[in-house]
Write a protein that binds this DNA or RNA. Sequence first.
DNA 1: TTCCGGTGGT
DNA 2: ACCACCGGAA
Length: 302
Amino acid sequence: MSVAPAVQAEMQTAVLEWYGENARDLAFRRTTDPWSVLVSEVIAQQTQAARAAEAWTRFIAQFPTPAALGSASPATVIRAWRGLGYDRRAVALRAAAIAIVDDHGGRVPDTFDELVRLPGVGPYTARAVLAIAFNRPVAALDTNIRRVLARAFVGDDDVPPRAFQALADGYVPPGRASSWTHALMDVGAAFCRARDPRCDACPLLAFCPYASQTRAVRATESAPAHPVPKRPSPRFESTTRWLRGRILDRLRDAPDGRWVTFDGPIGNHDVEAVLNALGDLARDEMVELDDSGHRTRLRSVG
DNA sequence: TTCCGGTGGT
DNA sequence: ACCACCGGAA
């Protein structure tokens, strides 16, 4: 269940003090500008923190405002997204920028309902922006933070998602939502890891039911559970997402606006598979196709 | 080779 | 309730 208020305050202090001295120096933490925070969260969803920080630095320099991103062509944005994966999210982020300009006067909105209506923004990202940029007392529950809170604050009870969110919101230290969010991410990455947790050095060790339980279990129990229900996974090169990646790389390398013809196989994908992938990419608004269905390019207009 | 993860679509 | 999307880390 929940933690006694006095203990809760001690735990908050332990986390924040640890963070004050051990925070990872990530570029996007030096700002609370809402647009910068939104971009950093979208990038960080798919990329580990250190790499995300590099990518964010480049991206935010190129598109420092919603207006800057919204007025760029999809092709420009997809090229800027190279190497980050999930290219549809780049297109969604651009659409979000346009919505911010058109519907919110160019400013990132500061309510959950408005944020979550933006393309590519779900409950996690909406709350992360509220907490980090606007310092609102909400918990941004990604899997790492959820795990930290579940282990150290909530204990073993499996609390249904709604109730968990409500509990987690209540654990946010007054006035410190922004630091709290970053701090829990670092605790999750440094100590409270899904595999091989390092409870011994964790700032929450003294308070954490999971840590004491883990010690007991480790002392008495032997090997963990079972291998796997494994199924033969297809070779990566035979997947459609690999094919999409190769197509997009070719298009990124082509001069802006130049049509590129796809009339042969790629890897072990035959022409039909290639054309199907082009159709998918067109439906996802990543590329435009000409009437032949063979010639394509990154979208120059949105 | 397997695993990881928010969002959105089914 | 699942799965596709992506690249990188373990």
